[in-house]
Design a protein around this nucleic acid. Structure first.
Lengths: 246, 246
DNA sequence: AGAGGCATTATTATCGATAATTTTATTTTT
DNA sequence: AAAAATAAAATTATCGATAATAATGCCTCT
């Protein structure tokens, strides 16, 4: 009678493929903030009708990168300094929830795997100053915790907020990498260690606090990068304006 | 050149109307958990084509009450004791973020209005034992804080989680009202007072903690109601099963 | 010249029909 | 009778076309 409600293993439908590609395009700033996207344009690009495009728009809008307004279409969201604070606060809170739940949900076996990954992470930290690799391996730990927290809704919201954060600082990527590379890495390493220890010790409150501190490092790096970006771009703009009025 | 990206003031399109009504139906348990909903069925009910129904399904799915799986359709989510913990943890965290941000964002005027509402709330608490009215006025305070926190994304996620929580305990509504009415009201009142005081004092950490404690009261009431519900329904089921096997 | 109204154009929303896929029922085989 | 294969039915996904709406440019009037 009831159909199989289980997990989806079939090939993805077109709307999901398109949504994925749109997300990539927006996060990578190939589509600028505030841009107005037309159905026909995207439909032509993927050689499909507009129906799947509409659904893709809705999916991207649900993640928060697109804003769909009736009869007017879809707009990429705008960059907003104030919203950055909100995103990072949410990120801290949601990652905290994931870690808190992980304390209760993780098996002892998962805990051992977590500590194993921590060792791997510290190795990378000591071996290289490559910030990309650094971010990569640290993200792996975060995702592992979130997955094992057995909290699908928290995981979904976490992915969403992390995506928004990534989009936000992709403008400042260069500054970010430079800034984050030096001292933040060491602080992160220490915080990851305390976080993992609290999780295997099943201390939810302490894990939550460590998680918040960890995202806080990223937040500080972002803010610092933003300042540097502003400082770098303050002069060119002023000169351009002067040239205009001359 | 660029179109009006501002707020939406036009009449809602059909898909949004349908989505709203579907949400109501699901939250009120007029559509049972796990139910499989067909496009044609809903389309016939609202005398529309299936296109707006599809979009409505996607919107409800984004809130989390519906799960859309390719080629198989839309299913109402299932009741899951484990998921309840997750929802309440998220609720605590998100309301905490809203209160934290409210500390920074609220004007002094907003703070005075908040304290005014607190007085109103305490009056209601003293005057009546009516739990509905009690929940109503307390929700008003929560929503006021969330709105003035100037954090649209947090507000959206908060609404979403609160809706899921409401759906979850709508099964046990009767027990919930009974349980919540007695002692929890007094605890909530004290916690609301400390929360508001921390907010006007702009102490983010303290406000966050108070917010968590406040949702914690609701969580405890829910869990207690769940226990009572289980106890009440344990016997009838057993007898029914015995009758079947006889 | 500028403001306001009107027609034009472009775009989204909805519809009805067809294609692709899954589920259910039937038949066949062992 | 049970299991596998097959056919039938039901359902979703996609398409192309039409209706509804918003933005744009033109024209008139002052």
């Amino acid at each position: 009678m009831a159909r199989n409600t289980g997990d989806d293993d079939s090939a993805p439908t077109q709307d999901r493929v398109i949504a994925r590609l749109l997300i990539d395009d927006i996060v990578a700033w190939r589509i600028p903030p505030g841009a107005w996207i037309r159905e026909r344009e995207i439909a032509a690009r993927f050689a499909v009708s507009h129906a799947p495009v509409r659904e893709a728009f809705r999916q991207v809008a649900n993640i928060g990168l697109l804003k769909v307004v009736p009869w007017r279409g879809a707009f990429v969201i705008d960059l907003d300094q104030h919203a950055a604070d909100e995103v990072y606060e949410l990120w801290k809170a949601l990652f905290g929830v994931a870690c808190r739940l992980a304390c209760a949900e993780m098996s002892d076996r998962d805990g051992r795997e977590l500590m194993h990954r921590l060792v791997e992470y510290k190795d990378v930290t000591l071996r290289t100053e490559n910030t990309f690799e650094h971010l990569n391996v640290s993200n792996r730990i975060g995702r592992f915790i979130a997955k094992r927290s057995n909290a699908p809704l928290a995981l979904e919201l976490l992915d969403r907020v992390a995506l928004l954060a990534r989009w936000q600082h992709n403008v400042y990527t260069n500054s970010y990498i430079e800034t984050h590379g030096n001292e933040a890495a060491r602080r992160s390493a220490a915080l990851y260690e305390t976080l993992c220890r609290h999780i295997v010790a099943r201390d939810g409150d302490a894990a939550d606090a460590a998680a918040r501190a960890l995202i806080g490092v990223t937040q500080e790096s972002f803010e610092q990068a933003l300042e540097e970006y502003k400082a770098r771009h303050a002069k060119p703009r002023a000169s351009r304006r002067r040239a205009k009025s001359a």
